[in-house]
Amino acid sequence: MEILMGFFFILVIVSAVAVAELRDLLAAALALGACGFFVGILFFLMMAPDLAIVQLIVEIMMVVVLVIALARTHRKSSEPESAKTTLALGVIVACVFILFSVAVVPLMTEFGSPQYNPEVSQRYIDEGVENTGSQNLVTAVLLDYRAYDTLGEIVVLFASVLGMSLVLRKVSKRMAEGKECL
């Protein structure tokens, strides 16, 4: 299990580097999809099947949205920053990575050990089924204990689609003539 997880973590990072470095935006979007699928598999390996389902379906949607957007714009990525700036920023990001991995990660609890704050989660695990009548504790937390969170989330979704309707209000000439974008 450990080796399998490590393998998929490496795949996630490799595809993330591909996303950052590919010059073709369509290829980078597909690499982003691959990265999301590996993240979904990792969720499944870490005992979160609900999350795996949501991540896989949302990832498909995200790739489709990006492909439609690229069809409406163009495929070729613009030039990155100059070589000197790239090197300087890369060194800064690498320094931040090394600093955090040396200073912060050793302070965190060991991977797979019982938790930092067990009280809340332990209460949900112990009493969740009697309190809510839901065997799936994730749904119990999502729609019963913390329904306010879900309310806030669906309001955010509502507002973002409202924003899209405002931003994409003006239709380009080709589409106004009734042609389809792809």
């Binding site: 870490m46 005992m47 979160a48 609900d50 999350l51 949501v54 991540q55 949302v58 949607m61 995200m62 949205v65 990006l66 957007a69 409406r72 714009t73 938790q115 809340v120 989660s121 949900y124 695990i125 969740g128 504790l137 994730v138 119990a140 937390v141 999502l142 913390r146 969170d149 879900t150 989330e153 955010v156 979704l157 973002s160 689609v161 924003g163 899209m164 931003v167 994409l168 003006k170």
Partner: peptide, 30 residues
Amino acid sequence: PVDPLLQAMVITAIVIEFAAVALMVSVAIR
């Protein structure tokens, strides 16, 4: 069982991220 609270929060985060990406993409198209 593993911690259900964090999983519920991450479900919320995934869906909100999708909505945010859709909004950002529409701004980029514009």
